[in-house]
Design a protein around this nucleic acid. Structure first.
Lengths: 225, 225
DNA sequence: AATAAAACATGACAGATATCATATTTAATT
DNA sequence: AATTAAATATGATATCTGTCATGTTTTATT
């Protein structure tokens, strides 16, 4: 099994603040896991006994609303930590995590994380900064949800996915989402998401290559009202 | 000037994790301030050089959206800290804070907070828990915004305000908000908020005493669809 | 390859909400 | 007390979005 102290992934998250000794210790009790596309990593209401460090792949974090629809709240990609919020507040998870493609994650037990939060203030400050960042993102999402149209939100989502998760060599968005996923990010009906995407296509803002979406007119998408 | 180590307010926020010595030190460099209703505590884009500990009163945190409307993202009341997110991420504030009634706050300089975050892991863990809690709240708000009707959101807002900020002796909500404020919490047009509140009144879910709102049928409000 | 199931697409329509217009009431200012 | 400004209220209308129905395409399964 690969060792945390040599893993490059940690450079991208709070674990970079840990000392070599701490990493060695964590390495000794972490477990690696392969998760298939579509698989549930953890469910809403489940108690997390640690955090996941995402080595490969991407997943969606969603919450079931009372009307039976999933709302995607965040996406977590290679390099990031998963489950830290619930771990810290010591509550059951308020979100469900599902892999959007094949993933590789390392599971680090709660006891290790808590020990390091106690001892290493640099580490806890990194986690704090991470969380502060998430909180700012959430504020933006709230404002968008409240004040913008479905058309605007979907356009922004496409740009966001491009900026955050990148594109394939042919220019298509590297993250493959179903129309239902798009609807669940934007907070609209699946039919509405489909309709708006069709419109974007007609307006030459995007094109599709198989199931993949390609942004053809980035400036145009950003201008959508 | 009153002393932090004797102040009861700190019991309600992360400052309770500080040692007596740390509190004495903070006490020495904090500044107390009275803020009048309607006054701006800090503005969007402003750099915060510390946090505010709210000794009395309540304020709203809002963000201006591109269409020129304010979205209220959170309310901060007596006992809570204000501005911690921006301080930690060392960015300009993404929110504006305005007093909803006369307030008394203590300002604690950034250097003090940072020093304690470095030294006192119990303190930084408390801040972490606070932030984790806020993040969970934000998730809930996102889901509500995306999936619920204006009517539902407004009903929930009234219940939330009752539960979080309490009532006056006559049963009216102790926090006095304009119809525009309600609209800015719910994320709707002021006219729509007014209309829905009028309906609630007709349906005997609420009543008004002057400018104050009284919840007459709590169960009914919770049942609103 | 055939069949079933899921995902995508589009039309028709109803309902929710925003916008604009205009009163009316309440609060602030002179 | 008179005047002005702000907040509240309500109607009319247009627009956006959700829902239901139906058809097509793509993917999975036998």
């Amino acid at each position: 099994m690969s060792k945390c102290e040599q893993c490059i992934i940690k450079q991208f998250n709070s674990l970079k603040a840990l000392t070599k000794d701490e990493l060695v210790r964590i390495s000794g009790c972490k477990t690696s896991r392969i998760i298939k596309k579509g698989e549930i990593i953890f469910d809403e209401g489940e108690t997390l006994n640690g955090v996941f460090c995402v080595k490969e792949g991407i997943c969606k974090l969603s919450k079931l609303s009372e009307n039976g629809k999933d709302q995607i709240v965040k996406m977590v990609v290679k390099g990031q930590l998963l489950g830290q919020r619930s771990l810290i507040s010591e509550e059951a998870s308020n979100l469900q995590a599902i892999a959007l493609n094949d993933m590789e994650v390392c599971f680090i037990p709660k006891s290790e994380i808590f020990a390091d939060l106690q001892k290493n203030s640099k580490f806890s400050f990194e986690v704090l900064k991470d969380m502060a960042h998430d909180l700012r993102d959430s504020d933006d999402i709230i404002v968008n949800m409240a004040q913008k149209s479905v058309r605007q939100r979907l356009a922004e989502t496409l740009v966001y996915i491009r900026d955050s998760f990148g594109t394939n060599p042919d220019g298509t968005l590297s993250v493959l989402l179903s129309r239902e996923d798009y609807a669940n990010i934007v907070g609209t009906a699946t039919e509405s998401a489909i309709r708006v995407l069709s419109q974007f296509k007609k307006e030459k803002l995007i094109s599709t290559v198989g199931k993949y979406i390609k942004i053809e007119d980035l400036a145009g998408l950003k201008r959508v009202e």
